Simulated scan of single mutants.
Amino acid sequence: MNNMRMMNFVVGLFVIFGVVALVWLALTASSTDSRFAKQITVSAGFDNVGSLKVKAPVMIGGVRVGRVSHISLDPEDFKAIVEMRLDEKYEIPKDSVAMIYTAGLVGEQYVALDPGGAPMPLENGDSIRLTQSAIVIERLIGQFLTSMGNKD
Rank of each mutant, 00 (worst) to 15 (best):
S147T: 08
D77T: 11
L113P: 00
V63S: 07
S31H: 13
V11M: 12
T146N: 03
E83C: 04
E123D: 08
V63A: 07
V54S: 05
V58E: 04
S30D: 15
E91P: 08
E138N: 10
L52F: 04
L122K: 02
A21K: 06
V97S: 04
V19S: 08
R139I: 14
F46R: 01
P119K: 11
N124S: 14
G117M: 11
L73W: 02
D95C: 01
M148H: 09
V11D: 01
L130C: 03
V20W: 10
N124G: 08
E88C: 05
N48V: 01
L27F: 13
V19A: 13
R129Y: 12
V111N: 00
Q39W: 04
A21Q: 06
E108S: 15
S69L: 06
L25Q: 12
V82K: 00
K53A: 14
Y90K: 07
G117D: 11
Y110H: 09
G66V: 10
V68E: 00
R129W: 10
G18K: 06
V42R: 03
W24V: 14
V19H: 06
G12N: 09
Y110A: 02
R139Q: 11
R64M: 11
V65Q: 01
K79V: 08
L52P: 01
G50D: 01
F9M: 13
D77K: 06
Y101F: 15
P121T: 05
V65P: 03
R35W: 15
M6Y: 10
G117K: 13
N3M: 08
A134Q: 00
K79D: 04
M59I: 10
P57R: 04
D87I: 12
R129L: 15
Y110M: 07
A80Q: 11
G116K: 02
V20H: 02
G66H: 11
S31A: 10
F46A: 00
R64N: 09
V106S: 11
G125P: 09
D47R: 00
